[in-house]
Amino acid sequence: MSATPSRRDPDRRRALLEAADTVILREGPEASMASIAAEAGVSKPILYRHFGDKSGLYQTLAERHSRVLIEAIRAAMLRDAGMRERVHDGIDTYLAMISANLHFYRFLMHRARAEDTATHSVMSTVMQSLGDEIAEILPTEPGPAGAARAQVWAHAIVGMVQNAGDWWLDHPEVARAAVVESLTDLVLGGLTARRAVV
């Protein structure tokens, strides 16, 4: 059983998280607990004492960084603008942030998520919450059927943009603006087609 994470020294805990950030930004998915401990100037047991174990550190990092990402996307999509502008800016915000934090994105979404079930759960919950929020702003017919359709669309959009973003990160020769426009056209085209037959 994991030890209870120590919260007696929040400044030390914050410093350890900043050390983890530094190592992950430098080394990407290959970042190790030993490297993080060395960067922080502590032993691995002390590092684990603050987070319980490796899983605890992964979860804390996932929650910390996914919150920043989601808040930025939420701000873009909930601003006072037309639907196309909000969809466009939400997608652009997501792609801009994952490309600017490429090592961190790959560490959390690929390495940590793959090897730690709790981190996988954290990231899945984040994406689920984002889908729920997008469903609230999608235009659809009233009633339970319309609400269900909005949920289907919203979660499909989240999955589509995430997978397209993963592809784009491996194809940097493609301009971000082109990817954003293509995804926006795809999303808005589907919504327009749906409204046309309602």
Rank of each mutant, 00 (worst) to 15 (best):
I98C: 06
A31L: 00
S66Q: 14
A145L: 12
G189F: 02
L16C: 03
A3K: 14
M123K: 00
R8T: 09
A196V: 01
T117P: 11
A81R: 10
S121V: 04
A118M: 08
A100T: 10
T60F: 00
E71A: 15
E30W: 01
Q128T: 13
V198M: 09
M33G: 00
H103S: 08
T4Y: 07
R106M: 04
I70Q: 12
A15Q: 10
A20V: 05
A112T: 01
P139G: 10
E27M: 02
E115Q: 08
A37S: 07
R74M: 09
G159H: 13
R194C: 02
L25C: 11
P29D: 11
V23S: 07
S182A: 15
A112S: 09
S6Q: 14
A3W: 12
H65F: 10
E63N: 11
H88C: 04
F51S: 01
I46Y: 02
D185V: 03
S129P: 00
E141L: 09
E85D: 15
D166I: 06
V158F: 11
S129Q: 13
A96D: 15
R14M: 05
M77H: 02
E30Q: 03
H88K: 09
S121R: 14
R67W: 06
S2E: 12
V197H: 12
F104S: 03
T22K: 14
S129M: 10
P45K: 08
V122T: 12
E181L: 00
R7C: 05
A15K: 09
T117L: 13
